[in-house]
């Protein structure tokens, strides 16, 4: 069997990569994808701990995380579309009206 700590480490690595993507990417859609990656990493930790402690609450939380991710994607992509329509660009650095 695979020790649970391996899963948790994999989850941490994926989360870290998600953070790096979130900070480094410039395209608003890929930034959203990095957020999805972080949520996925959290899900993996939830499932691993749920198995470790033999409790189903972790799986219920994964369910909720997936629902929230879906809702977030719908609203986020709508925002991306509005930005693309108004500013003719998907680069987040072009969205700087509130910056001074």
């Amino acid at each position: 069997m695979v020790p649970i700590s391996y899963y948790v480490i994999l989850s941490g690595v994926l989360f870290g990569l998600g953070v790096i993507g979130f900070v480094f990417k410039r395209n608003i859609i890929t930034i959203f994808m990095s957020i999805e990656l972080m949520l996925n990493a959290v899900n993996l930790a939830f499932v691993a701990f749920s198995r470790e402690f033999n409790q189903l609450d972790g799986l219920v939380f994964v369910f909720f995380v997936i629902v929230v991710a879906a809702a977030e994607a719908a609203v986020g992509l709508a925002i991306a579309m509005v930005i693309a329509r108004n500013r003719k660009s998907l680069n987040v650095e072009d969205v700087d009206l509130l910056k001074f």
Binding site: Y7, L59, F63, I66, A70, A74
Partner: peptide
């Protein structure tokens, strides 16, 4: 696949169905 390995088959199916099948298609 890792979820399947952890014995959470339902979550694995939901993961594919919602994430890969709907959210990423939307992206």
């Amino acid at each position: 696949v890792l979820y399947l390995l952890l014995g959470a088959a339902f979550i694995a199916a939901i993961q594919i169905l919602v994430y890969a099948g709907a959210v990423m298609v939307l992206f």
